[in-house]
Deep mutational scan, measured.
Amino acid sequence: DEIHIHFNGVTIEFRGLTEEAKKALEEAIKRGASEEELKELARRLIK
Rank of each mutant, 00 (worst) to 15 (best):
A42H: 05
S34R: 05
D1H: 14
T11I: 13
F7K: 04
K47M: 09
N8P: 08
N8W: 02
T18V: 04
L45P: 01
E40A: 09
L38R: 00
I5W: 06
A33Q: 04
K22I: 13
H6S: 06
E13V: 14
I46L: 08
L25K: 00
E35I: 15
A42V: 13
K22N: 03
F7Y: 05
E36N: 10
H6C: 10
E19F: 04
G16M: 04
I3S: 07
E36C: 05
L17R: 00
A24P: 04
N8E: 09
E20V: 08
I5F: 13
G16N: 13
R43G: 13
H6A: 02
R44A: 12
K23R: 11
E35L: 15
H4V: 06
L45S: 04
S34D: 10
S34A: 06
K22A: 10
R44D: 13
L17V: 06
R43E: 15
I29D: 01
K22H: 07
T18H: 06
L25P: 00
A28N: 02
I29V: 07
R43C: 11
L17F: 07
A33P: 03
H4P: 00
I29E: 01
R31K: 11
L45Q: 03
I12Q: 00
K39G: 09
I46E: 07
A28W: 13
I3K: 03
T18Q: 06
L17K: 00
A24W: 08
E27C: 11
G16R: 02
I29A: 04
A33V: 12
A42Y: 11
D1S: 14
G32P: 03
K39W: 15
E35S: 09
F7N: 03
I12S: 00
T18F: 03
E19L: 07
K23D: 10
I3Q: 05
R44G: 09
L41D: 00
K23Y: 12
G9P: 02
R31D: 13
E26T: 12
I12D: 02
L38K: 00
A21T: 11
L41P: 00
A42M: 10
R31G: 11
I3F: 15
G32N: 09
K30Q: 09
A42Q: 03
I12H: 02
K47L: 13
K47G: 14
T11C: 12
E35F: 14
E36I: 07
L25F: 12
R31P: 01
G9D: 08
A42D: 01
K30P: 01
F7I: 15
A21Q: 11
F7L: 15
I5S: 00
E20I: 10
K23T: 10
K39P: 01
K23L: 12
L17H: 01
V10L: 07
L45E: 02
E2R: 14
L38N: 00
E20N: 07
V10K: 11
E20L: 10
E13P: 00
F7D: 02
K23Q: 12
I5Y: 06
E20H: 09
K39V: 15
A28P: 00
F14V: 15
I12L: 02
E26V: 13
K23G: 09
E20A: 12
E2P: 14
K39T: 15
L41F: 03
R15G: 14
A33R: 03
E13T: 08
A21R: 01
A24G: 07
K39H: 11
G32R: 05
I3N: 05
R43Q: 10
D1W: 13
I46K: 04
R31I: 06
L45I: 14
F14H: 04
V10P: 01
S34E: 06
E37C: 06
E19G: 11
G9R: 00
E19R: 04
E27V: 06
R31S: 12
K39N: 07
A24Y: 08
T11V: 13
F14K: 02
E36H: 12
E26K: 10
E40W: 05
K47Y: 04
I5T: 01
E27N: 13
K39Y: 15
L45F: 09
K47V: 14
A24L: 14
L45Y: 08
H6E: 08
E27W: 05
H4R: 05
K22Q: 12
V10D: 05
R15N: 14
K30R: 09
K30C: 07
K22V: 14
L41Y: 02
E27F: 07
H4T: 12
A21H: 13
L17W: 02
K23I: 11
R44E: 14
V10Q: 09
V10Y: 01
E36T: 13
E2L: 10
R43H: 14
K23P: 11
R43V: 13
A33F: 10
G9T: 01
A28S: 05
E20D: 11
H4D: 04
I29C: 06
L38E: 00
F7E: 02
G32Q: 04
K23F: 11
E37I: 07
G9I: 01
E36D: 12
H6I: 12
E26C: 15
R31F: 07
F7P: 01
L45A: 04
N8Q: 08
E35P: 14
